[in-house]
Amino acid sequence: MAIYDQYAKVYDDSGQIAFSIKMIPYLEGLLQLHPVPGCTMLDLACGTGTVALSFAKQGWEVYGVDASQPMLDQAKQKAEQTSQELILSQQDMRAFVVPHRLALITCLYDSLNYMLSLGDLTQVFRCVAAALLPDGVFMGDMNTRVTLEEVWGNNTFFVEREGIALVMLSSFESQSGLSTVDIAGFVRQDDGRYSRFDEHHAEIAYPDEQVRAALEAAGLQVEAAYECFHFEPPEEDARRIMWVARKPGDRR
């Protein structure tokens, strides 16, 4: 079963929405430091659309791409409930296309770490470069090895919210740098019983120099790498890095 399938309906309520809410003002701060040529954007791996909707509410033309149709369904429902327009499509982030080039592309919540080969990661960046206007900007965050090895490691995590319980079993392979997380979710139904869903997630962390090289190979110029949610370069023990890269163009 695809990831973020049954999980989609309870994704926000399980607490995951907190990351997106925290990301919104951070992106606004980044845009002050890295201005873009217009108010058109794509949120790549947009999930339930929280970040995309925040830009739409500010008058941006907003596209959202995700591999999970159930997640897109949640984003569509939220857009309808708030009378906002999102242009949503189900696509593979390694081969996505948009109707016209855009000023800003974001890819958030370690979605890039789901690219399990450097070739796949570079292909995402190539698609990003093709979809950006000249002088357009890409912003994407990635988990570091510190997170996958030391924070997640080989552990069991529990999340409990009203009517929702998640059991997450993480495993880290030191040689490959691959982290896998098996999720068992339990959702209370109207009759009081719980239904179960299971998902298998896998992420890999890339050294900074490989990410930088992949961005540059795709034709993007790295403007900054920040410790995520801050505006300073990452320390050695940084858990998440925000990459900012620009497509070369005339800035006049």
Rank of each mutant, 00 (worst) to 15 (best):
M115G: 05
V128P: 00
E28N: 12
E199I: 10
L116K: 09
V97S: 14
A131M: 01
F197S: 09
N113Q: 13
V146R: 11
F138R: 01
N154Y: 07
D208S: 14
I21D: 05
L148S: 02
R240N: 10
G47S: 11
S179D: 05
L31N: 05
G153F: 08
Q210W: 08
L104I: 03
A131L: 03
Q189T: 13
N143C: 11
E232S: 14
G153D: 09
L33D: 14
L108Y: 01
P99R: 14
L86F: 02
K76D: 11
I3W: 01
M139T: 06
F125S: 04
F96L: 07
L215S: 02
V128A: 01
M1P: 09
G153L: 08
S14N: 09
W60N: 04
L30Y: 02
G185D: 02
A218T: 06
E232G: 10
P35R: 06
M139R: 02
L133S: 01
Q81P: 04
G163I: 11
C228T: 14
T147G: 09
R251G: 06
G153I: 08
I204C: 04
A225C: 15
V159E: 13
A8G: 11
Q189G: 10
L104N: 03
T180N: 10
I241Y: 05
E203R: 04
Y114L: 10
D198W: 12
D250Y: 12
L116Q: 11
C46A: 06
V124P: 00
Q6V: 06
A245F: 03
K9M: 10
G47I: 05
P207D: 11
K9Q: 15
Y114N: 13
E223L: 13
C39V: 08
Q221K: 13
Q175G: 08
G163F: 11
M71N: 04
E236S: 13
Q32K: 12
Y194D: 14
A165V: 15
T50M: 03
F96G: 01
F172W: 09
Q123V: 10
D92S: 10
V62G: 00
S68E: 02
A103T: 06
T147D: 12
E162D: 15
V128C: 00
P134Q: 05
L30R: 01
T48R: 03
S171H: 13
D66W: 05
L169K: 15
D73E: 13
S179L: 15
V98L: 15
W60I: 08
D250N: 15
A238L: 02
